[in-house]
Design a binder for these strands. Structure first.
Lengths: 154, 154
DNA sequence: CGAATAGGGTTGCATTATGAAACCAATTTG
DNA sequence: CAAATTGGTTTCATAATGCAACCCTATTCG
């Protein structure tokens, strides 16, 4: 039957996955972050079917992750550019990429090489930090959100 | 035709999405982080079909994100627990959750409430940082990885 | 100008994944 | 022992995916 949707889930991770949680959407966002803007370039770089790319781009536009901008003088040529909401996925993409590099390194050992434009130095691993800036593991935090509350009270 | 796979992609994000990039896997990891360990609990909390849950759990075990542990005395009762690789997805999940809370807040305004167990203080937003610990936006970094190299030299 | 090409998109169709429910075997619980 | 739990497989209808083939509108090339 229908793939389950999470539009009205009370879990924000589920709602987030509803927008960028399929195979292609996050890769499209990734390539947009690398500078890709044109339909044809997305298609060639990702090796994605055109109808699926159409579908994903329009959904990303609907969800305000991308916006569609006329690029040609007379219309009929467009660019898809990240919105602030889309750019805000930067930590997600970088964290996922670092995880992939760490646990599923490429055969050739190719790693993420993101550098501070100002200093040329590599960036740090993305981590969860407390209010003092100290890195925290999952064991160092407590969850006091709706899910936990539901489990305790229900 | 077949859903496209990225096992041997030279992009680590694609390889990462191959392991946790479907609708359910990351939600399973999320609930595992909240403490869920049993098949039935995952099923009830996620509202997932049993066959799909079987499939996802075994794939996550194959990919060493979870490990399957005998919980009953005589077998036939199991727990699925996060490995170090699985726990290492913590920043990804938290970043995604914060993004969801920021841009698609729940109708009731429910937010992520993760706190430092030691101090009780809320955690910081996950961000990308340079070697000095300063937060960086996507405009502050340069990408010097394989994809960019391929675009420059190709 | 006319033809070819490129960009963006839609349509058909075969293949695959998904979800609900039924069914199963082993193990607890009462 | 009977009934319920747990973890899992099977069956089947439906939805999503990928490929190829078209379509339409510019733009470029001869």
């Amino acid at each position: 039957m229908a793939r389950k949707r999470f539009d009205d889930s009370n879990c924000s991770v589920a709602r987030a996955l509803n927008e960028v949680g399929d195979w292609w959407s996050l890769l499209i966002v990734l390539h947009a972050m690398y500078g890709t803007r044109r339909f044809v370039d997305f298609q060639q770089q990702l090796g994605i079917a055109k109808n699926i790319l159409c579908d994903r781009l329009s959904k990303l536009v609907d969800n305000e992750v991308l916006r569609k901008v006329e690029a040609g003088e007379h219309g009929s040529r467009f660019e898809y550019r990240l919105t602030e909401k889309g750019r805000d996925l930067f930590p997600v993409v970088v964290a996922l990429r670092q995880w992939g590099d760490k646990w599923n390194p490429a055969p050739d050992g190719e790693q993420l090489d993101l550098r501070d434009r100002a200093t040329g130095q590599p960036i740090q691993p993305v981590s969860v930090r407390n209010s003092d800036g100290e890195p925290l593991t999952i064991r160092d935090v407590l969850v006091a959100d709706d899910l936990k509350a539901a489990k305790n009270t229900g």
